[in-house]
Design a binder for these strands. Structure first.
Lengths: 163, 163
DNA sequence: GGCGTTTAGTTTAGGTATAAACTATCGACG
DNA sequence: CGTCGATAGTTTATACCTAAACTAAACGCC
């Protein structure tokens, strides 16, 4: 196997370690993401954002508001409108006015959505397990912990910046 | 600080560790990426893909072909055309026909590009160092190594799939 | 009750990504 | 040589993403 020349080719040894870590993090995320996207497209003719949207609903059978979903998916509100429209037209979700607040709507999995989702989730999990199968369980746990610390720091910076 | 509810809220404790690692990896990448994008926009009115494009050229003063750049940036060819067009119109790059192959073109930093890039790179590095400052040097090294192993595995799967 | 502010959601404009179809050139082989 | 498959790059259609402007309803406070 020949050496892969990609994003990381930007980094040479005199760069800060942080930059090298970042480029590698980005490369890994892109590789996993594009693989999962391709599988979702081939197997279910759907996309990662739509799958994520459904996942959120599956975790919250009582339904979620658009704003809640956009927070959890870490994207801006405009997106959610668009993706919800598509899932609605595919009949996978339902949407009702929130009781007591006519501005808000509550989105839930429809019967068809509840029927279709489990198979998607099962396959999705299998792909992820395969993609991360290159690490031992110990290594996955280490990675999980390191990312937790990184994430805490990033969120802390974020709330500072908001001030 | 209140608990953050985001992508990871999809994961509950009975999910595979791999899925939890993946969601956390994705969350970290998104956080870093959106922060760097915002900084690039505020400081230089530019975007991450354009910065990456320039970075590749900086590393290769002799110039690169479009195809080379698209491989290194891990995006498809169509994008490169678009981004090159914009950088050309901003005067930051130059483009000449490849000697001996009239299909191909060679892209280089222009004089203005060489003038403008170093300050961008310096600032970019500072942001990254800040964002990854939550980890000790040892932890960054560990993270770097774990991601290396993950990436090797992902690339190996990729070449299998191509067969 | 009425007025200004906040909040929920949508719309719009612009950038980036893909896949797939297309043009033009190259290069190998009979 | 001439044809034919591979390669370089562009174009098109579609999806996602953001930021910012917008509508409508809810809230807060006198």
């Amino acid at each position: 196997m020949q050496p892969v020349v990609d994003l990381e080719s930007r980094a040479t040894h005199d760069d800060h370690l942080s930059v090298r870590v970042w480029l590698r993090l980005l490369a890994c995320t892109n590789l996993v993401e594009s693989r999962v996207s391709a599988e979702l497209r081939d197997a279910f003719e759907t996309t990662l954002p739509r799958f994520d949207f459904l996942s959120q609903l599956e975790r919250n059978p009582a339904g979620l508001r658009m704003t809640e979903i956009s927070k959890r998916m870490m994207v801006t509100g405009g997106n959610i409108t668009r993706i919800a429209d598509q899932l609605l037209s595919e009949g996978l979700i339902s949407r009702t006015v929130a009781p007591g607040d006519r501005r808000a709507s509550i989105v839930r999995l429809s019967a068809a959505g509840r029927r279709a989702f489990p198979e998607m989730a099962r396959r999705h999990e299998r792909w992820i397990v395969e993609l991360f199968g290159g690490l031992t369980e110990t290594e996955r746990t280490q990675l999980y912990a390191l990312l937790a610390k990184l994430k805490r720091h990033l969120n802390a910076l974020e709330s500072d910046a908001a001030r």
